[in-house]
Nucleic acid binder design. Structure first.
Lengths: 146, 146, 146, 146
DNA sequence: TTTT
DNA sequence: TTTT
C-alpha cells in the first residue's frame, strides 16, 4: 500500500536481559521486554492504580549487538519502531498471535553512573571484540563509533 | 510507574465499519481494524513485496460516536494512542492475548469528495441527532462543534 | 550528545510548489511550506477560531526530487523530521533565526484522483527522466522503484 | 483546517532553570530551554562532530508549576507538544519570528538519585504550598497526586 | 545554556 | 519480568 504509517515510540525499563539469536555470521536478532506503565487515582476508591504494559522488542544485527553489550535488566531506553503481529501455531495446532515491536531506532536513557557497576560482568562472555571507544547511545548507523 | 511512554501513531485505511458497543447511556466503545503496509523490492527475486499489518483500534465514548458517524470502510485515518495487550481465556480454557490500540486522538484523512456518496445511508440508523454543521475531523474535545 | 531525541511529525497541506536548489550533480535540496491548523470555539465569543501554523520543510537529494515530481500546492503530506534553527545575518547586519524541519521521511496523503489533473503540466519543465512506473509514496530508500 | 497534525517529541536536557511568569492567580506560563544533539563522524576529516539544537519550551498553568518545582538545569526530560512560531516587532520596528514548543505532555527522565541534592534549595522560594506526596512524573491531569 |  |  502507500500513504500509511506504522510508528511506535516507547520509553520503558528492561524487564530482562537482551537475548541474542544468531542466524549466521552476518544476521542476528536481539529480544527483550520493556515495561511501560501509567498511574491514575480511582474515582471510586481514591486508590492509586498502576497498570503495567509489557512490550516485546525485537532488534536486528549491529543494533542488536549494541543493545546486548550496553543494556541490562532495569535500564531505561527509548525505542522507536513498528508494530508487527506474527501468527504461529501452538503445539495443539491452534493459531496464535504474538505482537512485537520491530525496533528501528533507540536511545539509552540510563546514565552510566546509574547503571549497576557489575552489569557487564554479569553478562555471559561475548565473542564480540570489545571496543575501547565511548559506548554509542544511538542506533543510527552514522552515529556509531565503529 | 513514571518516566515511561507508550505511544502509537498510525495512518491507515479502515478494513471494516466501526462496530459500536454500548455499556450504558454514557459509556460506549467503538472498534475497527485499520491496515498499514510497507513495500520493498526483494533483492533475491527483484519482485515487489507488500506486507500488510492489521491493527485493532479501540475508541471510547464521544470519540467513538464521531468515528461511527463519519468513518466508513476504506477511509484513511490518522490514529494516535497506546498499545494495550489484553489477556483472555478461550473456550478451551487456554490463555490468549490480543493486542489493541487504545485511541486517544485521531484525524480523518479521506477528503469528503472521495468518500463513498452513500456511505451514510449504508449505516444503520443512529439515534444521535444529526448535526448540520461541518463534520469534525479531530477528536480533541475543544475542537468538536457539538 | 546522546540520549536525546529531536522528532517532528506533521500532516499538512503544501502552501506552494517545491522549490529546488541544486548544488552539484549529486546534491540538491527541495523546500516547501506546509500548513497545519487547529480550531477551537472561543469561550468568550462562542466564535469558531482557526489558527494556522506554517512550517518550512527541507528535503534532500533523491527524496527532494521525488517531492518535486509528485507534490503540488495544496497536496496533503505526512512529514517526519527534526527541528533545526539556522542563524543568519540580514542585510542590516542583524542576527536572525529561521526554524526549519529537516525532513527524514514522508508519505503522500492526497489520493491521485484528488490531485489537480494538470498539476504536472503546471510545473516548469524538468530535466529528470519521467518514470512510467507507479509513483512512489514513501521516502524510504527501499520503497523507491528507481 | 482539519486533517492536520503538528506534533513534536523531544528528549533533552535543561540548559537553564524554569522561568515562571504569572498572569493572574489562575494562569501562568513556564519557559525553559532544552538541548538535543546529534553526533556523526565526518567523512572528510574522520572527526567526531556534535551539533546541538536548542528548543524553547513553553508550558502552562499546573504543568508549569510542576516543572518549576521538580526540574533543574541539567535534568533530562521527555517533551511532547506542538510547534508555534510567534511574530514580534523588535526595537527597530523589524518583524522578527521566534519558534517555541508549546508543551502538552512531559515525563521526567532524570532519576531522583541523579538529581543534584540541593537542587530544590537553589531555587527561589515559592509561594506554592509544598506537597509531601511523591512527586508526579507525568503531566496528565489524571496522574497528578494533587 | 544542557548532556555524554 | 521493569521502574517510582
Amino acid at each position: 500500500m502507500s500513504g500509511t504509517l506504522n510508528k511506535v515510540m516507547l520509553i520503558g525499563n528492561l524487564g530482562d536481559e537482551v537475548k541474542m539469536h544468531y542466524f549466521d555470521d552476518k544476521n542476528c536478532v536481539g529480544r527483550f521486554p520493556i515495561a511501560t506503565s501509567e498511574s491514575y487515582t480511582s474515582k471510586q476508591t481514591n486508590e492509586r492504580i498502576t497498570n503495567t504494559e509489557w512490550h516485546n522488542i525485537v532488534v536486528r544485527n549491529k543494533a542488536a549487538e549494541i543493545c546486548e553489550k550496553y543494556l541490562s535488566k532495569g535500564d531505561k531506553i527509548y525505542i522507536e519502531g513498528r508494530i508487527k503481529t506474527r501468527k504461529w501455531t501452538d503445539d495443539k495446532g491452534m493459531e496464535r498471535y504474538s505482537t512485537e515491536i520491530q525496533c528501528d531506532d533507540f536511545t539509552f536513557l540510563t546514565p552510566k553512573s546509574e547503571q549497576s557497576p557489575n552489569a557487564a560482568s554479569q553478562k555471559p562472555a561475548s565473542s564480540q571484540p570489545q571496543s575501547s571507544t565511548t559506548p554509542p547511545v544511538e542506533s543510527d548507523n552514522d552515529d556509531l563509533p565503529f
